[in-house]
Design a protein around this nucleic acid. Structure first.
Length: 648
DNA sequence: CAATCAACTTAGTACCTAAAAC
DNA sequence: GTTTTAGGTACTAAGTTGATTG
């Protein structure tokens, strides 16, 4: 097992060399020549061609670079309408790297300033009333508001909180308040509960007023102008200060997330746009004009020191194009996935350890849809892993288990500290390799000690332009949906039953991607309710059937029009109730199966929307049954372009 | 190379609101 | 009309990826 160093990687030329060219002939329709590193650029070459055809047929000429003013219609029609229908997907794209030509916005909305507590709301230290300085009080309220949440009982949370809180105290406060356990926030907590109760009890008018105020804010700050089009901003409000709550066992939980001031803010917009004004008496940290990026506002957050951004809504051109591209890359993977699979199987036999590790890791990523798994700084975040960062302690090898050979048992915490637990039969070679990788290692050692995401992605790049680890997730998710829909959709089913099939297909993907959720708090109860509804409906059905029967008997005896009619209407009633019952039962099944599975994430991020659109068209299902309004906005491009014969 | 930074996607949950049930 | 429930949205944390820096 010679060499450690990653240099060696290149000793053996990647044998898949011919692979990436596999669709070289599609090469980018335009603005090309430089890409190389921006693999994605040519992704939708094929779709673009499709688009061009479409446009031609509509005699709608592609305009040159400039996004173009909506010339004529500008005054004919109200602008609004024009904006809503803008089909960015029919326009030519910008050259590589340029994200926009013009950008104007109003800047962020800051968190409302702190409002000190009324005098009668007390804080107690060691049993005695204590008046806190404004700054200390503000931080105390953050804690008070979380009082009945369990993490305020956690050691780390309390420790971090207390440390940061003390930083906000005056020197007197600091010397008095030396122990968190002597602090009594209950009065404050009660006050906030009363406040939120009062908010619920507000009159119609008051609520209306708040709603209007929100709408005003949205109208003023929620949109920007990007290249002649008004686009919705995703998150125009700056995150308010509060206590950091990481997910899982986060070492920084409870730390103070500080208030963001205009002086922290970098504004990004066009030079020739109306530059947003900072709040009176304040200045921006910086104003820049960088059209190589998509964000409008950024600031550095104090917990991890990472940068946060204000960006556009998923319905925007800039997000939509990228999303579309993502699926095109996944479709390119579809074309060469067999080759890649053969390759990594070969690599299981390599004499180079790192090649074997890479190949086994890739197998997991492909087969199990694991995430890449970057290494993380210890003590900065919760201890979670992905494929490349798996440790020996995260898998167990069973030469035989429940009648299956070569079973690998995975048990680890992944993104968001969601547990991944799975027992998977693998090929013998994989199994043997894993044994090899684990030899002489401690549980806390890396399983793939010669591999990281960077090495893996570099390799993938060689196999296919634009290929990275996450493309496998997208590909496997989308292809699974397509297959499952084919398999599960029964042409004779009615619409609710077909939708159940859709949801089951979606669910298969969610399970593959391990998209879990906490069972809703009211799950059991709502299940019971549904069941009793079903029972009631069953009884109703039985009644209706009895009535039908007697009506039939009656009709047989009387043989008149009236009784015949009665039979008919009773028949109809039975049918109607049967249908209702079915619907309820379907609903119950769907909900039960969904107890711990979240469908939203895969729907929004992994499933090529054109598959769903095509399915809807094919079976006459209204698209509204599958995508709600927001989703339809996000996927407008797919809804517009996919026909029923679309193949992922 | 490894570490860090920057930009962007993906993620679950808390909260809100509208619709349904009572 | 009031309460309950479900669905949708806002929020923001936690990933991935590629570039830059040392």
């Amino acid at each position: 097992m010679a060499a450690h160093s990653v240099k060696d990687m290149h000793i053996f030329p990647p044998r898949i060399k011919d692979e990436p060219d596999d669709d070289g002939f599609f090469s980018s329709p335009k603005e090309d020549s430089k890409p190389l590193k921006r693999p994605r650029e040519d992704d939708d070459s094929s779709s673009n061609r499709f688009l061009l055809i479409l446009q031609d047929s509509k005699a709608k000429k592609v305009k040159s670079k400039d996004k173009k003013v909506p010339e004529a219609d500008k005054r004919k029609k109200p602008k609004k309408e024009e904006e809503q229908k803008w089909k960015w997907w029919e326009e030519e794209r910008y050259p590589e790297g340029i994200k926009w030509k013009f950008l104007e916005h109003k800047g962020p909305v800051f968190a409302p300033p702190y409002e000190p507590l009324p005098e009668n709301v007390k804080f107690y230290y060691d049993g005695k009333v204590m008046k806190l300085s404004t700054k200390a009080e503000e931080v105390a309220t953050f804690f008070a508001k979380m009082l009945d949440h369990e993490y305020t009982t956690k050691e780390i949370f309390r420790k971090n909180f207390f440390k940061d809180w003390r930083k906000e105290m005056t020197s007197e406060e600091k010397s008095t308040i030396t122990s968190l356990s002597k602090c009594d926030f209950t009065h404050m907590s009660q006050y906030f509960k009363a406040q939120s109760e009062a908010r619920k009890q507000m009159s119609k008018e008051e609520k209306q007023k708040i709603k209007e105020e929100n709408e005003r804010l949205l109208k003023e700050y929620g949109y920007c102008v990007m290249d002649n089009h008004k686009e919705r901003i995703a998150n125009f409000k700056i995150e308010p200060p509060g206590l950091f709550r990481g997910r899982g066992n986060h070492p920084k939980m409870g730390m103070l997330k500080r208030r963001i001031m205009p002086e922290d803010i970098i504004i990004n917009c066009s030079k020739d746009s109306k530059i947003p004004a900072p709040p009176p008496g304040h200045k921006w940290k910086e104003v820049r004009h960088d059209n190589k990026v998509t964000w409008l506002v950024s600031w550095t957050e104090n917990i991890q020191g990472s940068i946060k951004y204000i960006m556009l809504n998923p319905s925007s051109r800039i997000k939509g194009e990228k999303d579309w591209q993502k699926y095109e890359t996944a479709r390119r993977l579809k074309k060469c996935v067999d080759k890649i699979r053969n390759q990594y199987r070969e690599d299981w036999k390599s004499k180079e350890m790192k090649v074997r590790q890479r190949a086994v890791a890739l197998y997991f990523i492909d087969k199990l849809a694991l995430r890449a798994g970057n290494e993380k700084e210890e003590g900065e975040t919760a201890d979670t892993v992905g494929c490349c960062s798996l440790r020996v302690e995260h898998i167990k090898l069973h030469p035989e288990l429940d009648g299956q050979e070569y079973v690998v048992e995975f048990d680890f915490l992944g993104k968001d500290s969601i547990r991944y637990y799975n027992k998977v039969p693998v090929e013998k070679r994989v199994f043997k390799n894993l044994q090899l990788f684990m030899e002489n290692k401690q549980p806390e050692d890396d399983l793939f000690d010669r591999l990281n995401t960077s090495i893996l992605n570099k390799h993938l790049q060689d196999l296919m332009e634009g290929l990275t680890a996450k493309v496998f997730r997208t590909y496997n998710a989308s292809i699974t949906l397509q297959q499952q829909l084919k398999e599960l959709t029964n042409p004779d089913d009615n619409i609710p039953a077909k939708i159940l099939s859709y949801n089951r297909a979606n669910r298969a993907v969610a399970i593959l991607c391990n998209h879990q959720r906490a069972p809703p708090k009211t799950f059991e109860k709502s299940m019971m309710n549904l069941q009793s509804k079903i029972d009631a409906k069953k009884e109703q059905l039985a009644d209706a059937r009895r009535e039908l029967k007697s009506a039939k008997a009656d009709a047989k005896v009387r043989r008149d029009e009236k009784s015949k009619k009665s039979v008919e209407s009773k028949k109809k009633a039975v049918q109607r109730i049967e249908e209702q019952l079915m619907k309820l039962e379907v609903q119950a099944t769907d909900r039960e199966e969904n107890k711990q599975i979240a469908l939203g994430t895969s729907k929004l991020n992994y499933l090529d929307p054109r598959i769903s659109v095509a399915w809807c068209k094919k079976w006459g299902i209204p698209i509204e049954k599958i995508y709600n309004k927001t989703q339809r906005e996000k996927f407008a491009w797919a809804i517009d372009m996919a026909e029923e014969d679309y193949e992922f």
